[in-house]
Simulated assay, not measured.
Amino acid sequence: MALLLLATPALAQHKMNSSTFLSNPESIATDGKYLYIADVGKGGNPTAKDTNGIIWRTDLSGNKAERFAEGLHAPKGAVIAGKILFVTDIDRVKGYDLATGKELYNIDFTAENTSFLNDLAVQDNNTLYVSAMDINKLFRIRLSQQSAIEAVPVTGKLQGLNGLFVDNSSGRLYICTFGSMEKSDGEIGYISLKEPNPAFTRVSGRPGRYDGIALLDGYLLVSDWVAFEKSGEIIKVKLSDGSSAVLNKEKIAGPADFTLDAKGDIIVPAMMTGDILHCASR
């Protein structure tokens, strides 16, 4: 698919958190009242079982931080299903009651030989999807007292499987991949959730080191690390033709798994600097 840059102006972003409580924030979720920030912890090791991972809860401005959950290892993807916050934590998916902070779920993936569960996406209050970045596999979780884990067979190479977003209106699971680490060769596309053996379909020919993904008004919003330095971008991809534009004016150091606020603007963690940034999406 041809790459055509849209005539969308680059927009400035601003830092939200005024304090330095964050170490290596990887993901953000919101219930409209608070932000929940998954922080890998000091050292930033994404696979170390070091118990220094934290889930922070802040106000919607990214301040007034409190420790919502502690003792995790390297929490990454964060989503809210119903009244439960779910996060990935190396080889487990954990769920916390939003009202009390009590751990309600601790779903064990060790049998899948993964140590890098990454993003989560919600299909409904009983169904989640999770990416295992190190083994390039996609899983479905059926939530119950004894939650079931199902591998989703996808046709196509999903190297560095990362960001996920479910669009129930189209029956699609949008996916972005980080690629092979050695170069920017990640992809953006989708699979059909209506198919038992879905094929990965690209929506853009633009390569990158992609992390977070969301759908808004016929566009995919995707974060791209670009490189392991302050060079990251938030891009906007038009679904109808795959054309893309960069939204942020200033480069970001490690733009990871973001969320959208009530206006549809982007709240993205800069993982390498410990900042939370606001970026307009339109």
Rank of each mutant, 00 (worst) to 15 (best):
S131K: 05
R206M: 08
S169R: 12
V40Q: 04
T100G: 12
K137N: 13
Y105G: 10
W225G: 03
T155M: 04
F86R: 12
L3R: 00
A10R: 04
L98D: 07
L128E: 04
V203A: 02
N52Y: 01
D97C: 03
P46R: 14
V203S: 00
D134I: 14
D185P: 05
R209E: 02
T8I: 12
E250G: 05
H14K: 10
D257R: 11
E187P: 03
Y105R: 15
A74M: 07
L6R: 08
G101F: 06
M1H: 03
E150K: 15
T47H: 02
N125M: 05
N118F: 07
A2W: 03
N248F: 06
I54G: 00
E26M: 13
I37A: 05
S223K: 11
I188F: 03
W56A: 11
G82E: 05
S18K: 15
V237M: 09
K15G: 11
F21N: 10
A245H: 05
S115Y: 00
V226P: 03
N17D: 15
S184E: 14
G254T: 11
K251Y: 09
D97K: 01
N106D: 15
F139V: 14
A280S: 14
G186R: 11
D224L: 07
Y96W: 02
Y105P: 11
D97V: 02
N168G: 03
G95H: 10
G189I: 08
G62I: 13
D39P: 05
D50A: 06
L4Q: 02
S170N: 02
F200T: 00
N136C: 06
A199M: 07
D134Y: 08
E26T: 14
K194G: 12
S281R: 09
D217C: 04
N118I: 11
C279M: 06
P269M: 08
T259Q: 10
C279L: 12
G43M: 01
S240Y: 02
F21D: 09
V93M: 03
A148S: 06
L277V: 03
R142P: 02
E195T: 14
A253D: 13
I55F: 00
D275K: 13
T20Y: 10
G32W: 04
L85A: 05
F165N: 06
P207C: 08
A81Y: 01
V268C: 11
G179T: 01
E150D: 14
I149Y: 00
